[in-house]
């Protein structure tokens, strides 16, 4: 089995609202897969179908080689899920919830639990109703990470975590990745998080997959920002195909360049003479932005 999640042409309707409209999602075993989309794109809806909580209206889906709806109980022994909006039973303590969820999944590594409690700095003795949103999120994360499962499904897992804890989360997921036998589906609209952690990613919008592949695969969609200090006037650079937003200030230039126009642009710079140069790789923000602009034009 090479695909942990294999969904093709997923359709999900809520009455007249079409939440998913032919969505494709393919996650290979052992990879950390980013699932990106703005709010309302259909990430949570997709995940609920994968968990057998919702039934899809069209398309095909398989999870860990099984049918997520009819084989839900068996499949759930092999995965752990962190919902986007974690709520805890008000009268149970955080520690009780971690143990409970672990046991309901079929077992929990108590040493790992203790280690994660330490790293996330969570007091497990507080009652559910007294935790802040970030701390509720930690409870669910620890419960999931301390379970020995093949697949982790994390729906916007860092919403509510402070930057320090986001960093801890990133470290922990990178460690999981190094182990190599765990698949992680990480939904997010925080792009920086996905950029660092994910092998491949799927970008969705309005219930449809707009792009999928490695970050490198998507470079063609993106532009690199170049800032340089030049020895002479950069004649002809501004009009070069693939160069955008050109700005000149005395001997300094700043422009964006399409990835496939990078080489001619650099040749031109070298021909003029470069005193200093800074290039910025495309961020996912830009990638997102450009993807949407492309869609809008269509």
């Amino acid at each position: 089995m090479t695909e942990a999640i294999d969904a093709t042409g997923l359709v999900k309707r809520f009455g007249k609202v079409t939440a998913l409209d032919g969505l494709d999602l393919h996650v290979r075993t052992g990879e950390v897969h980013g699932f990106l989309g703005p709010n309302g794109a259909g990430k949570t809806t997709t995940i609920r179908i994968l968990l057998g909580l919702s039934r899809h209206n069209g398309g095909t889906v398989s999870l860990l080689g099984g049918d997520p709806w009819s084989e839900a109980t068996e499949l759930h022994k092999r995965l752990a899920y962190v919902p986007g909006d974690v709520t805890l039973w008000p009268a149970l303590t955080g520690g009780e919830v971690i143990d409970l969820l672990g046991r309901l999944r079929g077992g929990l590594d108590t040493t790992r639990k203790a280690e994660l409690l330490e790293r996330f700095q969570l007091d497990p003795r507080k009652k559910g109703r007294t935790y802040s949103k970030g701390n509720r999120q930690k409870v669910a994360l620890i419960a999931a990470l301390a379970s020995d499962v093949e697949l982790l499904i994390l729906d916007e897992p860092t919403s509510g975590l402070d930057p320090l804890m986001e960093e801890v989360f990133r470290e922990v997921v990178l460690e999981e990745k190094k182990r190599g036998d765990r698949t992680v589906l990480l939904s997010s609209h925080i792009l920086a998080e996905v950029e660092v952690l994910c092998d491949r990613l799927t970008i969705i919008r309005e219930g449809r997959t707009v792009e999928t592949g490695t970050l490198a695969d998507m470079r063609h969609l993106t532009r690199t920002t170049i800032q340089a200090e030049l020895a002479g006037p950069p004649d002809g650079l501004a009009t070069l195909a693939g160069v955008h937003d050109f700005q000149l200030d005395h001997d300094r230039v700043r422009f964006d360049v399409d990835t496939d126009a990078l080489e001619p642009a650099l040749r031109k710079l070298v021909a003029v003479g470069v005193k200093s140069l800074v290039s910025q790789p495309p961020s996912l923000e830009e990638l997102f932005l450009r993807q949407y602009q492309k869609d809008e034009r269509r």
Partner: peptide, 26 residues
């Protein structure tokens, strides 16, 4: 002070019935 509870679940809290007992006993 907000009362603290146990850091880990008692043996009975690990099945659907155990959970339901906690939620219904009051």
């Amino acid at each position: 002070p907000a009362r603290l509870g146990p850091a880990s679940a008692p043996a009975g809290l690990g099945t659907p019935l155990g959970l339901a007992w906690r939620l219904h006993r009051g």
